[in-house]
Every structure is written in structure tokens, then in C-alpha cells.
Design a protein around this nucleic acid. Sequence first.
DNA 1: TTGTAAGCGTTATCAC
DNA 2: GTGATAACGCTTACAA
Lengths: 346, 346
Amino acid sequence: MNLATSSTGPVRATMDDVARHSGVSLKSVSRVINGEPHVSATLRAKVEAAIAELKYVPDAAARSLAGSRTFIIGLLLDNPSPNYTMKVQKGVYDAVRAHQYHLRIDNVDSSVPDDEFSAQLEALVRNSRCDGFVLTPPLSDNLLLLDFLDQSGIRYVRIAPALEKSRGSGIVIDDAAAAAAMARHLWDLGHRRYAIMRGPTAHMAAARRRDGFIEELKRLGLEHPVIEIDAGFSFEGGIRAGDSLLASGLRPTAIFAGNDDSAAGVMAACSKAGLKVPDDISVCGFDDSWIARSVWPYLTTVYQPIEEMGHAAASLLLRRDEPESALHRLDFHLVVRDSTAPPPQA
Amino acid sequence: MNLATSSTGPVRATMDDVARHSGVSLKSVSRVINGEPHVSATLRAKVEAAIAELKYVPDAAARSLAGSRTFIIGLLLDNPSPNYTMKVQKGVYDAVRAHQYHLRIDNVDSSVPDDEFSAQLEALVRNSRCDGFVLTPPLSDNLLLLDFLDQSGIRYVRIAPALEKSRGSGIVIDDAAAAAAMARHLWDLGHRRYAIMRGPTAHMAAARRRDGFIEELKRLGLEHPVIEIDAGFSFEGGIRAGDSLLASGLRPTAIFAGNDDSAAGVMAACSKAGLKVPDDISVCGFDDSWIARSVWPYLTTVYQPIEEMGHAAASLLLRRDEPESALHRLDFHLVVRDSTAPPPQA
DNA sequence: TTGTAAGCGTTATCAC
DNA sequence: GTGATAACGCTTACAA
């Protein structure tokens, strides 16, 4: 009963079959498949007819063995936020499939010692090549990784790079400007006492957000210093940071968190402390990821087109005519929801 | 300046190099690589030394062209919850890498008409084979998909199947028993008026949870009927369902949601309505996914080992000696946190 | 236990 | 424009 199901399935046509069926040479079929020039319309039509009739599909393994392409794009992952990661992955996936490519996932752990990290990379790359990697933060700013890829001659595109932006290509938004926009939003509401929840130190884009936020406030005329606390990029980190902030007795009227996950944590800490968001205190995040609408009140945040960024990164990788290095800047915008409001009357 | 980086990188050793270097035949090297029997210890040692020295790694494309394996496992995804998906993916990834395999992602959309869905599958499978698929819910119960895979002779393992469990292999927990445990927890707290948030209809495991929950309550002697509302498996669905429940004037003292995402939505709806969780109303979920700790109060839920389930599924696929069909049951357990408490005094 | 030879299904080289 | 023919790096008969 299972003999049938354990077979290889229906026999697939090969390029040879197509060649015979259409009465042309193997090489001509290959030319048609790969859209090479110097093919007469007649020949092309014949071949395409045969391909359709035989339901021929090129074999990926044979192609990559003989040729120089693997038809695989690798997505390098090391991000703590499932929301962010899934969005990037979706964008990369769609772009890759649109080009008949496949998406391979490669997790790495960049928190280990350097030599161990290098060993991870070696193992990944050595045993199966791909036509390029999409790098997600914080890996986009991992110099060890960049060096490795450059030395190996492997193409890559970085999502949200903040360091050495001329290496490889990159897809970014203007993190500093986005944070500045958030600063203006809070300022306009009347806030004058701020706290900021910093992201992980390896995440350079997080640092840009912090800088952009504080600079803008200074320009607006802020007098009090901004309280700064490390919150990582996780809900847990946010709740811890929120707890310690509120326990300290310092009372900002607005808190800017480096991403939505930590913002949600801060909101939870406020609830615990008996503070109502946004009546008693305003909280805002960054990303407009899925969690921004998974909390109550809905989070005021910065929308960044994460899925599109993944899509753009992969598309760039798939265009072989792309210039060696280019930075593509996508648009962000403020999303004002319910977690920010004017400060309470003193 | 970029000439170097666009090259193929360092030259890789081939099996031929290893053979020459160790003074044995090509076939012997192949035997060692594949762990085939009938190899003397001396020969194996020689070959392994050469492999190490030359840093030889087999070429995946050549292997799959010549042999019958592709060294790729595909993960079929169509789940709305990023939390769930990332956990499964992590588990599958780790298992796959432990066997020197690679993980390929394949998103499908099962909400389209049947013929369109079939076309998606054809396109996916035709142009690059893999050694097997891990199916995640709700795809695990998609009969069209199962038929397609069976007909194509492609191996697969289903995560959390609820229908036709004898098809392929499956990794499950006892959803009904888990829901029953939750029912007892709420009953013991003193609740007597319940609402349940149902999952998507295609998600059969969700139906099992509903049945298990209600049956257990009946056995315990419940008098009032359980209010039932469809909430999908998303935060949005949960908040909508919660809104309409509370607007209806019906006042259960405890709400059981089919997964954590919808449970979080319900909690938000309660907050909006001015109800305090758990003082005024208890809410609980299912999965113990990451969002269970991303809400305040932390969610009482059922832990199911999602990552291990992914790991087990992939491992099963990678064991070629596995019996054709087997159901592997993993353990769940109740996680009592802060969102459930005794009902308010009448 | 070990080795030889013949593919696997493409792309690349070089004639025609 | 088109077509032989040789790689590509490995596995799988089949011998020895």
C-alpha cells in the first residue's frame, strides 16, 4: 500500500526530451530557457511548445552543478523579535519566488566569542553555496560577518545597516529622522520630561534612533536631560527597564522605546505601577510591528516598511546588473495611536 | 577594487583531491563521507585526515544530482501567528542543521480556491525537489495538500494533525486533554459561567480544544451553556470577539481562548470595557507562545513544546528507517500565571 | 574490503 | 544562429 507513495513520483522530462521533441539541439533548448540572445523566433517557438507539452522544468541541482548559479538566496537571521523577523522573511520570500529562486534560512548566533562565530559561518557557507545573503539586523552591522563574506566573494545586501554603509548594498530608513519626528510629536503634545529605552548595543540602528530623538529635543529647546535606560529589544527588557525607572522615583511624562517590543514591556510596567497609559504617562515605540496592535491601548509608533525592505533587499540581490554598492532609502512615517497624549496637568 | 570580491572566492577541494591526497579511490572517499559499511579503520583514518587537511566539504549540488537526496527539508508555512511560526521554524532548523541539511521555506496561501491552491503546490514542488516537507497547522489538515504529496511520492511529517491521523507521520499533543486541564483549573477556581473563543474552522486542533474544554466542564457538572464566539487566531479577532461578547451583556466570569494571540485580544477588549483581569474576569490562552508574556497580566495558558515539535518533525523526516506512519505525542502542561483568579464575589 | 566505469541533467567552449 | 562535446563533482552499479 505504501509502495506507490514511496516511489519517486511521476517521471520528469529532461532537457534532452525537450530537444528531441522539438528537433533541436540540447544547447538550443538551454538558450531558450536562459533567455540568451541569438535565437531565432521559430526555434524559440518550437522549443517553448515542447516545454509546455512535456511540462518540462529545469532541474535545480544540475543547473547549479554545471553553472555558476544556485538559485538559492540565504536569509541570515539573528533577531530576537519574531514580529520583525517574520515580516522580513515574508518580503524576502516573495521577491525570491518571483524570480523562481528558493529561500534558505540560516540562523546564526552572534553573541558567542569571535572564533566560535567564525566557525559557524564557515560551516554554513562551506557546505552549500547560495547566490547571495540577505543580512538582517543586528547582523547587518557585524563586521566579522562582513569581512567573511567579502573574503569569500559572496554577495550580500544589508537591511538597516548603520556602520560602514558603503560596504555591500543596503536598505535603510532614516532612523534618526524617524526618531526626530517622534520627538516632535511628543513635544507638540506638551511633554517636557522624557525617558528613552535604549536598544541592544550591537544594534547600531537603535543608537541612531536615540541620537536622533535627543538631538531633536535639544533643538526644540529641551531643558531637562533625557533619562536613558537599557531595555534591549524585548518585552522582558522593557518591563524590567520600566520597573526600575518607575521605582527610581523619576517621573518622565513620556517614554520613547527603541522598538515596539520593549515599548509593550514599558506599558506593562506602567500598568503594574498603577499608571494609566496615556492619561498618566505616554509611551511610544518603533517598527509598527504586529505587537503595536497587540497591546492596549494601541501603540503610537514609527512605521517602517519591514516587509518591503526584505523584498527590496532580495530583489537587489537578484539583479545581477546592480552596481556594487548602493544605499536604498525607504520611507517611514509616524503612526499616532492611543498610547500618547498630552501630559497630565501638574 | 571590487574585482576581487566578485570572484568565486577560494578554490574548494573536490573529492578527487581528497582521493589523490590520501592515495585511495574516489569511491572509498565517498564511502567514508556517507558512513557506508565495509571500510577498514586504516582507510577511514587516512581519508579523514585528508579531508581535514584539505578542508574538504562535499558539494551539495553534485550530491543531489548524482544521488537521490537533495539535503534540503522544506518547511510549509501558512500560519497567522508569528510567534508560533518562529518557534516551529527554530526547532526544524536546529534538527535539520544537525544532520548537515538545509532548511528551505515555502509559504503557501491555503485560503484561495482549490485549483489555485493546487497550482501553487505544483509550482513549488516542480522546480526544486527536497527530501521532505514539515507541515504546520493549518496545512497539516489540508486534505488537498496531503493528496498532492501522496501522489507525488513526497515524504512529509505533520505538526499537530487532527484529521486522518494515520496519513504520514505526525507530532501532536493531546489538545483535548490540555483544554480539559484548563477547564479543571477554572472550575477549581470557582468559575461557573464560561465563554470560549473558537479558532479558525480550518484549524482542526482548535476544534479539539473546544470539544475537550466543554466536555470536561459537563463532566464536572456545569449547568449553564458555554458561550461560543469565533475569534480566529489573531489578536484582532480576539479583540473583536471580546468587544461583541461584552457588548452583548452576557457576563462570563472566565474566557478560554483557542490560542494566546486571541487571548491577548480578549484581554485588551476587557481593558477597554473597564474590566480588570483577573479581578473582574479571568482570561486564558493556549500555546504559551511569546505573547503570553508580552501582555499584562501575564497570561495563564497551556504550554505546548512548539519548538520541540518542529525539531521532532524534522528529525523524523531525516531518519530514513522510520516506519511509514506514526503519531508521536509530546507532553503539554498548564502554565498558571496572573490572568486567572477566582470569580468576583457576586 | 576496495576500485573501475558509467552516468545524473545541466551549462560552457568552441566549432560550424 | 546552431550544434557537438566536454566538463561540473558526486553516487551507483558492478567488478575484483
